[in-house]
Design a protein around this nucleic acid. Structure first.
Lengths: 241, 241
DNA sequence: GCGCGGATTGAACAAGCGTTTAGGATCATG
DNA sequence: CATGATCCTAAACGCTTGTTCAATCCGCGC
């Protein structure tokens, strides 16, 4: 997405315009004519270059994924910190890409499925290596842990709006990243509970009753895995203490 | 959403049909006629009862939120575990509500904003109470911690599709909840890192340089707050060990 | 300078959209 | 039995949609 540089192929300009509007307004809410206007061309030309609106979406999907995975390799190896700083500085320039990506991840979209799989795989190998080198503890279930670490990693992207609203800034920014780093790293270092009484209780409860039923209330307090009741459980459980 | 019981107001049947289709296909991709067909009425009647498609959406929003917060109170106090079990048993019956809610949370929607705020507030007071009673450690920044705990709580809802795909089941289920409980509770109990070397390094780095820039790579490894590079950073950092 | 092929446009198309309107059922109340 | 109100439908409205098509433009090899 180097739309600022004006000497792009018309086809590329249309694609960038589509990414911008699809990402901002969603696929169904964006008309071919709106994309054409954004790119400064006629609606017919959009179809001429991409055959159909659906094909245009597919082209955007694979472009965004490849662009994103390309940067991933860029970050790998070499001066990582500098690469991160570069990415953060570019966060505004990359906004359309980021918005599009966020929409992809929650949509029914096989390109998003592939991307998510590769993110989980990356997290999994990171986890394995760090466990091997003694930096991280051995998780109970590495598969599930990698999955949830990935979910936790992408949720600020997907829930960008709520995050920005609560932090009082507009969108993902270096500032919100800075404020978030220590609390999250603290959670990942020390956990949240003072002791393992809940974990032990849950281990026994789940060992005994594999189903969702549980005869004692204390078996899984604040069990955030199930979101609709996450806050609620937490609340109600807190009344037990 | 007790659509199974057929003797509902026509207006309620239309509302339920709208929730079903909006939640499954999205607002823009759902036509008034499709909702009418789903409810077994004419398109005109939909407008007659709800004035416009936008107003129908607003009606669905507030109905879903109130229905959800109603259950929240239902869960609070009393036999919590039994209430949870009841909720999980009803997960299929509640699917339309859940899907609608998931869509709301990522959309530009003031009703969703209010709901999210109340979820954060609930998590915050849970956190405060548990810290006061010594069950949880004092977080570095309770505000941010509550925010991220809420995000982590709702992400399986919002990313339902990816979660289900990876777990090999269809949608949120009691089974996926069961498999997730222990690993997550383990993370919340013991953390992920074996020692606090990264946390300490990050504290110093951020204390020194409040901006996004960082002169050393070790200041925020695996810093999941920023999602687009979450997996990537983790990966590249793992090469340092 | 000619011709040809791709880029590009604007008009046109049928289909679908949200909404309006006129009128037919249905039913409690006078 | 008439009356009005409410529920409801079918048709039509004007508009937007994705896509097609004929016509024009433009640069490049001959």
């Amino acid at each position: 997405m180097r739309s600022s540089i004006e000497d792009l192929t018309t086809q590329a300009r249309i694609r960038d315009a589509a990414i911008l509007r699809f990402g901002r307004d969603g696929f169904a809410a964006t008309s071919v004519r709106a994309i054409a206007a954004e790119a400064g061309v006629s609606a017919g030309l959009v179809i001429h270059h991409f055959t159909s609106k659906d094909a245009l979406r597919a082209a955007c999907d694979s472009y965004v994924v490849s662009e994103f995975l390309g940067r991933k390799d860029e970050l790998r190896g070499g001066d990582t910190a500098a690469a991160i700083a570069r990415w953060l500085a570019d966060v505004d320039a990359n906004r359309p890409l980021i918005d599009y990506l966020a929409r992809m991840l929650t949509a029914e979209n096989s390109a998003a499925d592939d991307l998510f799989d590769s993110l989980v795989a990356g997290t999994k190998s990171m986890l394995d290596e760090n466990v091997a080198s003694g930096v991280m503890r051995e998780p109970i279930d590495p598969e599930i842990t990698a999955l949830y670490l990935t979910l936790y990693g992408v949720v600020p992207l997907v829930m960008q709006r709520q995050l920005a609203r609560r932090l009082g800034v507009d969108g993902l920014s270096a500032e919100s990243l800075r404020r978030s780093t220590l609390p999250i790293l603290d959670l990942y270092t020390h956990g949240l509970y003072t002791d393992d009484r809940f974990l032990v209780a849950a281990e026994m409860a789940i060992g005994r009753t594999p189903g969702p039923r549980s005869d004692k209330g204390e078996n899984d307090p604040n069990q955030d895995p199930d979101p609709p009741i996450a806050g609620d459980i937490s609340d109600s459980y807190s009344t037990h203490h």
